[in-house]
Computed example of a mutant assay.
Amino acid sequence: MNIINELGILAIAARLQRLAEQIRKDGVLIYKANGIDFEPKWFPVMYTLHVKPILSVVEVSAEIGYSHPSTISLLKELEKQKLIKSGKDKSDERKRMIQLTEKGRSLIKRMEPVWEVMIAAAEQLTETENNLMKAMAEVEQQMEVQSFYQRAKVIMAADESRK
């Protein structure tokens, strides 16, 4: 057992990050095993544009739940790879509209069967007694009600009032 595991709940963010990194690394290996050169970090944008073919930068950001700067960074990488293209919105020139290129759509077609394999493997991993996906959804709902920071502030204020 390493120190991060021993820390328990105090290291929740580190453990989630470690788990995500392990899954990402294996995702790269799965794509490579299928002859696909793809970074798992691109998945949220690519899949979103697969389902919703043309969106503004702000809409992409909202759909994937990332900050605007993080979304811009991903979009730049995808544009450099020629997987997406952008253009000005005809009705509002300030808006940049994003869509998959032909190369991007072709890549999605090659990835779809691989996603089925990934879903099956992920289901095996997460179908545990405490089902990780259900637990994550519950925690996300709890954070919508009151964030981690807000909860800590309430606890600190209560501790302060007891002094």
Rank of each mutant, 00 (worst) to 15 (best):
Arg15Val: 00
Leu78Ser: 03
Gln142Ala: 15
Leu100Ala: 06
Ser56Trp: 08
Thr48Tyr: 09
Lys153Leu: 12
Gln81Glu: 07
Lys80Val: 02
Gly35Gln: 03
Ala33Gly: 12
Val114Met: 01
Val45Met: 01
Val154Cys: 02
Glu39Trp: 04
Ala33Cys: 07
Ser73Gln: 06
Ser56Glu: 08
Leu29Arg: 10
Lys80Gln: 05
Arg15Ala: 02
Ala62Trp: 03
Ala20Asn: 10
Lys80Asn: 05
Lys163His: 08
Leu125Asn: 13
Gly87Asp: 13
Gln142Tyr: 12
Asn131Met: 10
Ala122Lys: 09
Ser147Arg: 01
Leu49Cys: 02
Asn130Ser: 09
Val58Met: 11
His50Cys: 13
Lys41Val: 11
Leu78Ile: 07
Ile4Cys: 14
His50Gln: 14
Asn130Thr: 09
Pro113His: 14
Gln146Met: 11
Ser147Gly: 06
Lys82Cys: 06
Thr128His: 05
His50Ala: 12
Met156Glu: 10
Leu125Lys: 14
Ile119Met: 08
Val58Trp: 02
Tyr31Thr: 00
Leu125Cys: 13
Pro53Asn: 10
Leu83Thr: 02
Gln146Val: 06
Glu79Val: 01
Gly65Tyr: 05
Ser56Phe: 09
Gly8Met: 08
Asn5His: 14
Glu129Cys: 08
Lys76Gln: 09
Lys95Val: 06
Ala152Lys: 10
